[in-house]
């Protein structure tokens, strides 16, 4: 992997240059401390240092709502293209985002391939940015606090400059298109990178014990803790919406005027009451406690059994956004009997 350096004062020009590769998305500050992932024109608004945007980058690949098909009864419906976004650049991806992308790839591109995801994924450039954890980050526990690959370029901030890792041929193309922005990295850069890495490792204050967690969960399936959390959870689905790896969806048909129908795909949550209702009205998970348990088991047990990794990257969004203060780290602590 090639490693370069980029001076801070050249960052706006670098970000500007990314526009040549697709629609440019970056975190912007919508209110003090509240960040949103948006398409940006003015590159000075980009805040790659922002820890978490409300919605993660998954919305770039599969929008919260899009029309899959439109047409009239009796005709072959057509894809209006609403779910296909063309080239996009995600500037400000953190290591956890990059790992989340890998998890979404596992889900959407193995076995059958989701055509919308595949097309948007191929068209996505990922430019990472080194973050610094806060009290809700527990990515270090899940081995997702650094990324060796899965990005095109990755910028790590050092004093007055950035270390730039080139992670793909596309990333290399960006560098070659803007040779005046980059210099070779020096031994001093390496030294400071190593210091930052060590200090960052010590900066984590939250940790999740994932030792043997799938089996622990299997043993604790009937633990009273699930009833307790079920009683607290509103099943509002916020944690699912903000989760970078949650990707349940629903499909509904709608009739619009002139007897044209449209088939719409929407983000869904397994916490919603009617998630597992079948024709005739039977609900396979009618209790909130069952739905809450199902969500945790899906992420830390079922996904591990299917793909070898949990579908959680420790980003802390669910902790930040739960209206009743349910904290995933505390939940698993309760399950283990630590608390």
């Amino acid at each position: 992997m090639q490693t370069l350096r980029l001076s801070d004062h050249l960052l706006p020009e670098f970000v500007e240059s990314l526009k040549a590769w697709g629609t440019l998305w970056a975190p912007v500050e919508r209110a003090p401390g509240v960040f949103d992932l948006e398409v940006i024109d003015d590159v000075r608004r980009a805040r790659p240092d922002a820890l978490r945007t409300i919605l993660p980058f998954k919305k770039l690949l599969l929008k919260p709502r899009f029309t899959m098909l439109t047409g009239r009864l009796g005709e072959i419906p057509e894809d209006p293209g609403e779910g296909r976004h063309g080239p996009q650049v995600f500037f400000g991806a953190h290591a956890c985002d990059i790992h989340a992308l890998r998890i979404l790839d596992l889900l959407h591109l193995s076995n059958f391939q989701d055509s919308y995801y595949l097309e948007n994924r191929k068209n996505l450039m990922v430019v990472g940015y080194g973050c610094w954890p806060d009290e809700r980050c527990f990515c270090a526990s899940l081995d997702t606090s650094t990324a060796d690959d899965g990005f095109d370029l990755f910028l790590t901030p050092l004093e007055g400059r950035m270390l730039v890792s080139v992670g793909s041929s596309l990333g290399d193309d960006v560098v070659r298109a803007n040779p005046h922005l980059f210099e070779p990295a020096t031994r001093q850069d390496t030294r400071e990178y190593m210091e930052r890495l060590g200090a960052r490792r010590k900066a984590f204050t939250l940790s999740l014990d994932v030792t043997d967690l799938p089996y622990v969960l299997e043993l604790k399936r009937e633990d009273p803790v699930w009833r307790e959390i079920g009683a607290r959870c509103l099943c509002c689905g916020s944690c699912s919406m903000v989760c970078p790896t949650c990707s349940c969806f629903n499909v509904v048909d709608e009739l619009v005027p002139q007897s044209v129908g449209q088939r719409v795909r929407l983000w869904d949550s397994c916490l919603f009451r009617d998630y597992a209702v079948v024709a005739g009205g039977h609900n396979f998970r009618a209790d909130r406690a069952d739905r809450v348990r199902n969500r945790y088991y899906h992420k830390q047990e079922a996904f591990v059994r299917e793909f070898g990794v949990p579908s959680c990257v420790g980003c802390g969004r669910c902790i930040e956004n739960c209206p009743t203060g349910i904290n995933v780290v505390e939940v698993f602590g309760h399950v283990r009997g630590d608390l």
């Binding site: 989701d114 349940c248 397994c270």
Partner: peptide
């Protein structure tokens, strides 16, 4: 196997 509605465990 994408929308996840019918998943039971893995």
């Amino acid at each position: 196997g994408k929308c996840n509605h019918c998943a039971i465990g893995h």
